[in-house]
Design a protein around this nucleic acid. Structure first.
Lengths: 218, 218
DNA sequence: GTCTATATAACGATAGAC
DNA sequence: GTCTATCGTTATATAGAC
């Protein structure tokens, strides 16, 4: 019987990441000290550096974990028969997470750091791309099913679906009384109206419709 | 003749803020040293602390300045006769700024810090609120003019207009090849389709329209 | 008002016993 | 593998000459 138990090692690593996630979300990367992470995880300085080479590696580890969760979400969405419902599920699920203030703080923190850490940026971009690629597939199917305007390029639609999730971030941070359910409802309205097929137009009583809100080619 | 020239003092203060803006955008708040700001501004450490009590005050000063610029934008928008055009102008103008990578980095940096600095958060929220209030007025007028769906509450519409500006932030950071003009075009499509009056529906050939993308009351 | 020089504090990471 | 103790570095802000 070996004393080195890989499962136990991995479990402890994850426990440290969980503790660090809270610290980073609350105080940000640079204002979180390694000592605080250790205290939160119930270990000592020496131990932390046994599991991670440095503070940055702890931060990066959090978003490697997040990539696994995104993959699971995508797999679950593929099981949903109706592509439009699958899109709503994916966007709704991630949005709900981001509407939590603590999660929102962490998202803003990692975004700010991606601007200055190319390696971290590539990791996060990989996670985003996985989500986007899955949505491209769902959008394509939804277009074929007549549920989404064929005039919208699936890549563009998917990119903006991901982007829309980030839209309320500032307000989540600035307004503590924000109602997540209400935000989610408006978000659903926006993406429904954005993507739905353009209905045949019966001319309105007293006016011209000069702009149909379509995406001009080119 | 006094040697203390308030105008010159103010000019130097602004020069420091301009230099600091670049530093903070490129490296973030904590990784920017006061020495770097001084070098960029062409002054010495001693001088910096003559104009600002501490590093944070320099950072905060940048967003006080930004509030003035927002006020000017709002004043210009009020001059535009057509409220819908005024809305497009305001959203387009701010979006264009945010689509610049350097500006985007600074926006993410300040957002991340607002999550942990209530005083800074109140300042930024004040700037946001001014923009939102102006948009509420414009939306209300646009609804009266039949250009916006009366089923959408102006406060909700205005909040989301401001939020939509932030939506592409992540991609501005992660994708250096992003085309600002293309993003702006899609943004315009989204807000047009989101806000435009619901046209009378002639039933589509072979299907039911179960969800019209409206905002349910309550 | 502007400079140089520096006091003071804090933090990340390591050394080395057990 | 975990701990305690501590080293080396770095940065903010101040002191005080000019």
């Amino acid at each position: 019987m070996r004393t080195v138990d890989p499962a136990k090692h991995e479990a402890k690593r994850r426990a440290i990441l969980d503790a660090a996630t809270m610290c980073f979300a609350e105080k940000g990367f640079e204002k979180t000290t390694t000592a605080e992470i250790c205290r939160a995880a119930g270990i000592s300085t020496g131990s932390l550096f046994h599991y991670f080479p440095n503070k940055r590696a702890v931060f990066v580890g959090i978003f490697e974990q997040d990539g696994d969760e995104t993959a699971a979400l995508i797999a679950a969405a593929e099981e949903i028969g109706d592509p439009w419902e699958a899109i709503l599920h994916v966007v709704g699920y991630v949005s709900e997470q981001v509407l939590n203030p603590l999660a929102a703080k962490l998202v803003l923190e990692v975004a700010a750091h991606c601007a200055r850490d190319t390696e971290l940026a590539e990791l996060v971009q990989g996670n985003d791309r996985a989500l986007r690629d899955a949505l491209i597939g769902l959008v394509t199917r939804a277009v074929e099913a007549g549920r989404i305007d064929p005039g919208i390029e699936p890549g563009t639609a998917a990119s903006w679906l991901v982007a829309l999730i980030d839209a309320p971030l500032s307000r989540v941070i600035l307004d503590p009384d924000l109602d997540p359910a209400a935000e989610l409802a408006v978000m659903k309205t926006i993406l429904t109206r954005f993507l739905r097929p353009v209905l045949p137009i019966s001319p309105p009583p007293g006016g011209e419709v000069s702009d149909t809100g379509g995406i001009s080619p080119g």
